[in-house]
């Protein structure tokens, strides 16, 4: 079962994602409310894939991508973005994010991104 770390500052978003993932055979090994916590949890848990929100307090998703990729150049990170965050998504891609999904989440899109990133 692929192990996923969910990063989002809104508990609501984490719940939604978790629900989608768990129902579709993923194991959510952790949830982080900000980038700082995400980096810390990544180092501890070494998940197979991370879903990463962009705007978060403490440390944003882009910085978190950078730090996680510095720790693990093969880290697989999917950005969770909203409409209108184009430039930030691009920045995240430059920093090493593998794919992105757009809120509001459509379960099939989320699953497609995960499946593809996990290859």
């Amino acid at each position: 079962m692929p192990r996923v770390l969910i990063v989002d500052d809104a508990a609501f978003m984490r719940m939604m994602l978790k629900d989608i993932l768990v129902k579709n055979g993923y194991e959510v090994i952790g949830e982080a409310p900000n980038g700082l916590k995400a980096v810390e949890m990544y180092k501890q848990e070494k998940p197979d894939v991370v879903t990463m929100d962009i705007t978060m307090p403490e440390m944003d998703g882009i910085q978190a991508v950078k730090e996680i990729r510095a720790f693990d150049p093969n880290a697989k990170i999917i950005m969770c973005s909203a409409m209108g965050q184009q430039a930030m998504v691009m920045e995240a891609i430059k920093s090493g994010a593998k794919d992105f999904i757009v809120k509001p989440f459509q379960p099939e899109r989320v699953l497609e991104a995960l499946k593809k990133v996990l290859g």
Binding site: D9, A10, F12, M13, M16, T55, P57, A82, M83, G84, Q85, K103, P104, F105
Partner: peptide, 29 residues
């Protein structure tokens, strides 16, 4: 402020509250 509007937009859109999503989106702009 942007972050707050943005988070609200994302949540509202997910719950299909389109007017909230729309308004926050325009605020973001």
């Amino acid at each position: 402020i942007f972050r707050a509007a943005h988070t609200l937009k994302g949540m509202a859109a997910s719950m299909a509250f389109e007017r909230v999503a729309d308004l926050t989106h325009k605020m973001e702009n």
